[in-house]
Amino acid sequence: MKSLILRTTTRPIIVVLLLISVFLLLRGHDLPGGGFIGGLVAAAAAALYAIAFGADAAARLLRVRPELLVGWGMATAVVAGLLGMVAGREFLTGLWWVIAVGDQEIKLSTPLLFDVGVYLVVVGVVLRFVLSLEER
């Protein structure tokens, strides 16, 4: 599977896919996308890389073990839920902060943070699936 064409085309594709995945994650609250979809796209990119260059190379590129992505993702999602309680509301209640940067507004919120957690978990999980199977 490690053909030359695959190898040469993979790198740019991956960069594009990763950018798309972040874009999908961030716009998810308003347009189709979100943590799942973004995470799946990113994971697909990584899976592609693993298939093209082998599991070891993918693991080296990643630098972080997938388990840690999963762990941090879960922790992020839980913390996003807990922030609502810290603010004296129910668990998983959305909190919003709008920051004005020039004429653009950046909306930061716990649902977004939650979605980031989802994103991380999805990426970590799919990588774990693919890497475990590729390693053998």
Partner: peptide, 23 residues
């Protein structure tokens, strides 16, 4: 009171997340 009702789920999940990180 609400924390008490959420805790049986969130507490072990948070523990699990932490345990993953302490692998």
């Amino acid at each position: 009171m609400n924390a008490l009702l959420v805790a049986p789920v969130v507490w072990p999940l948070a523990t699990a997340a932490l345990l993953v990180l302490l692998q």
